[in-house]
Design a protein around this nucleic acid. Structure first.
Lengths: 331, 331
DNA sequence: TTGTAAGCGTTATCAG
DNA sequence: CTGATAACGCTTACAA
């Protein structure tokens, strides 16, 4: 059995209250008794029972992080940002991925109440009334990470996907006139994907570029889908001069196919993504894209959460993470 | 305040004991009382206090995961593997990174005792007697992830870096005779790095290839270090015909420089890495490397941990993760 | 400065 | 089948 303060108390000939105080560095404890208690604790290798402490104090040193899934550098960067800052503030990070809606709902249930975590960060990628309703009832502080269009009623760190996409597309379109354009979007259930597509469409309008329904193909944000769709595109009619994608991963999938077909990137064919993942900057030519400061999203979210936990103010807050054009050589 | 079983008890006109039993699906509870309790619980949105449950049951639904850091796809893949399997078994994953030795030691202290987690998984990348000593005193089950040469006394999931490197180098050397060879190693404090270098050296011996001290340069496993070192190599004397690296990331850094210099990969110059990260397989030509099933490492580690927690047997176990040659086109 | 004792939310033992 | 009640390890008034 792991030693408890009871044992220390017996060994030191004091009450458990004194031991508790000494261990908590209560200044009221006489230095001599404190040092005696400390040395005994060290000798018997005492480790405080964190569960008991958290339980009795009604606090927790845990921060929950609910992500849609763990694939893709995008998500691991968020984990990185959260973990780093959380650890620096004395918290552990509890990572959860929620493949389906049920497990999402379960996770939320465990975090919004239950006392397991002191607070949590949840990333939302679609509009879902039930989830929102569940979050409204939370008696645990939390912060939402999502597209700017979502969850305005909660404290949140947002990404303006629409604006990022619009800005990027305008940059691309202002470079030259393209003979033909294809857009590979993310899944339509995903709000980020939608907003990016909207940004693309509006940029087209602004530049008087006509886009047909069939020029927009739906992928699923994965490298494989980019690869597959690009192959399909190439097998049809003529090869497009510009491919725009809903994220970098799909752009990279396309680039693989483009290279296989011996087309010159930035000359015969142009491409751009969104996300700014490192991979895109490691290849040559570097991918033109919009950089989203993913790690910063994580960091900001924890900061906001810790603030909220401290002051317990219900002032609604929002922090939008800026995006930045990464001029590569694929445009 | 969050509702407790006490309130449910009052509302249902029964004792808290009955409520506790009903909620735990104890068959002894009459169906009618159970359904009454269930409906009340739902109505007042009752969520069990997990801290209290864990505390009183002396268990935990948390699994700790202590990683050296969170950079690199390698680590996020481990998280992925662990989280997925853990969640499937009803556990949450507590991710920690330990930049320095002190924080590593702190994390271990919190996990080996303290009741916070039911068990933990720790990745070790260097020989460290203090850490080992700390682990020996653990009263919490744990599993070590490390190079095969390390921590034989603990339950562990290991990677045979030496063998992987040896096998790869032999494959490379058997392809052709190279005019000159450079080896970019990982940091020498890192055991995986050491073993990989040893594998390389022994393969050289076997093929009677003479390697000078200056042909082995120390990097730090990052893309940037690969890039930087490759530049340095190219600026010296003649360009080598073969570059071998301690991991894929550094190989990718080299490839960037190689492409910049308009050298033809797989013709003018050859390169191979180790790890088998997706990035290496996304570029064209595909990187020749040894695939380490990283996600599997995570999964196996949790499996082993859960087994250990269940049977509490102290039978020492080890599972070595197989590596597989990935024949790319860079050799 | 220290001790006594109540209490945190839940489980589990023992009667009934 | 249900109810009292002790217990888990620790913190924290309140007393001394």
């Amino acid at each position: 059995m792991a030693p408890t303060i009871k044992e220390i108390a017996k060994l030191a000939g004091v009450s458990i209250a004194t031991v508790s105080r000494a261990l908590a560095n209560d200044p009221k404890v006489t230095p001599s008794t404190k040092s005696k208690i400390d040395s005994i604790a060290r000798k018997i290798n005492y480790q405080p029972n964190l569960m008991a402490i958290n339980f009795v104090k009604k606090t927790s040193n845990l921060i929950g992080l609910i992500l849609p899934h763990l694939y893709d550098e995008f998500y691991s960067d968020i984990i990185k940002g959260v973990e780093k800052y959380a650890q620096g503030s004395g918290y552990y990070t509890l990572v959860t991925s929620s493949a389906d809606e049920d497990s999402l709902s379960d996770s939320i249930a465990n975090f919004t109440s239950g006392g397991l975590s002191a607070g949590f960060i949840i990333m939302l990628t679609s509009e879902n009334d039930e989830i929102v309703e569940q979050l409204r009832h939370s008696n645990t502080p939390f912060v939402v990470i999502s597209d700017k269009s979502l969850s305005r009623e909660f404290n949140s760190v947002t990404i303006n996907n629409y604006e990022a996409s619009l800005k990027l597309c305008k940059h691309v379109f202002s470079k030259k006139k393209y003979a033909s354009i294809k857009y590979i979007s993310g899944p339509k259930s995903n709000i980020d994907s939608q907003m990016r597509k909207d940004g693309f469409k509006d940029a087209c309008k602004e530049f008087s570029i006509a886009i047909k329904k069939k020029d927009i193909i739906e992928g699923d944000f994965t490298f494989e889908s980019g690869e597959r769709i690009c192959k399909e595109i190439f097998s049809e009619e003529k090869i497009p001069e510009l491919i725009l994608t809903g994220n970098d991963m799909m752009a990279l999938g396309c680039i693989k196919v483009i290279n296989k077909n011996k087309l010159k990137l930035g000359e015969d064919i142009f491409i751009a993504g969104i996300d700014g993942i490192i991979l895109g900057q490691m290849i040559s030519p570097r991918l033109t894209t919009m950089k989203i400061q993913t790690e910063l999203i994580g960091t900001n979210a924890v900061k906001m959460l810790l603030d909220q936990m401290k002051v317990n103010s219900h002032k609604h807050r929002n922090s939008n993470v800026v995006t930045e054009l990464l001029k590569g050589n694929t445009i």
